[in-house]
Design a binder for these strands. Structure first.
Lengths: 203, 203
DNA sequence: GTCTATAATTAGATAGAC
DNA sequence: GTCTATCTAATTATAGAC
């Protein structure tokens, strides 16, 4: 699994695989742009230049296609790794940069697809929650090893979600048009503060 | 407009108004929970115990109903006012508290409805963007009166959106279950830093 | 593998009786 | 104002020919 770009090997493949990949690629794009409910199977089929029936032939159901689409085919995980290797020093900056660079590159990343779909689709909501718990909260909390580790990780999650929504979904200025460097400059220290700065533990 | 709770005055009203209010109330609840695309007119009608046709009789179209539903009937605006009276001192805390207190009270606030709907509905996306520009960015930027005012306002918007999404939509722990006081303790200073703290202006 | 045809369901919306 | 009945269009999904 996870062959990005299988470019029409001349010796001729069993030829169906190419269609399947085109469908997947298109699905990721449209789910990323309009979310699960805002995307129809027909729209995907049309954009991928195949018959709608073919989509069901390959993926069974719309949910099946969505599941296949978010199966992060190399998109995020390696990038996420690089965040955690290197310790807490400068991690705020790395988190912001990695997030933005990957999301800028393509709006078909699992995080965007899930963030777009979660608000109107309960399945996606659960998937996104699990995704964040597993990929971010879990690792962060383990790494921080402090009594308020969970809260700190939660604060980082708020930054990530807020940044993703403001820049890619609602497109609020100047967040939407700022360069990665600019945002790293302003949000890097902010995230770092969530990780290692002072925290008010009231009471 | 904007009578919350018109509780069945006995002398008998012209009786249609009551239904209209029930529809509106129900619409706000469902749009707030499932977003524009995740909510059907029929579902609203059923929950409001009226006929679907009646919804169209009163509001014309689904969009018309949505528009009427988000017309913030006293929900947020007065609360927003109180944020800005009092100056920059402690404003971070006031922003977080006001946001959470209002959103905790009911998930039928315009902000929640729009935030849920924007990802799958372009109309809602535009409305949310305008709403934020008008109610938050505009006032904040005017108040800050600094060269990087726009960026600072944007950073606050990221906090607001991130908090709203994490707590009310994706429901990430421990953000979702934390008390208002706890979150004010951790996010208040963070927001304050966005407003009045040091900012890296690179280059 | 790919397409045609179509079933089954559901959504938004309208006409018109009462 | 309220409801019945209905229309139209779109959606997910399947059966079956090629």
């Amino acid at each position: 699994m996870a062959e990005e770009d299988v470019p029409h090997r001349p010796g001729r493949w069993r030829s169906g695989a190419e269609s399947k990949q085109r469908i997947l690629r298109t699905a990721r794009e449209l789910f990323g742009r309009h979310g699960y409910r805002g995307t129809t199977v027909r729209a995907i089929a049309t954009a991928a230049e195949v018959d709608p029936a073919m989509v069901f032939y390959f993926f069974g159901t719309k949910q099946g296609l969505f599941a296949a689409a978010i199966e992060m085919s190399g998109a995020v995980p390696p990038a996420i790794e690089s965040i955690f290797t290197g310790g807490l020093d400068g991690m705020g900056d790395r988190i912001v940069r990695t997030l933005l660079e990957n999301l800028d590159k393509s709006d078909r990343t699992p995080l965007v697809m899930l963030t777009r779909s979660a608000p109107t689709d309960e399945q996606s909501e659960a998937l996104l929650r699990e995704f964040i718990d597993r990929e971010i909260t879990g690792r962060l909390a383990a790494m921080l090893d402090a009594p308020d580790a969970a809260l700190r990780a939660g604060m980082v999650n708020v930054q990530i979600l807020g940044l993703a929504v403001a820049r890619y979904i609602v497109r609020i200025e100047p967040i939407a048009s700022a360069s990665v460097d600019e945002l790293a400059g302003s949000f890097g220290p902010l995230v770092q503060r969530c990780l290692t700065g002072r925290t008010a533990l009231p009471g």
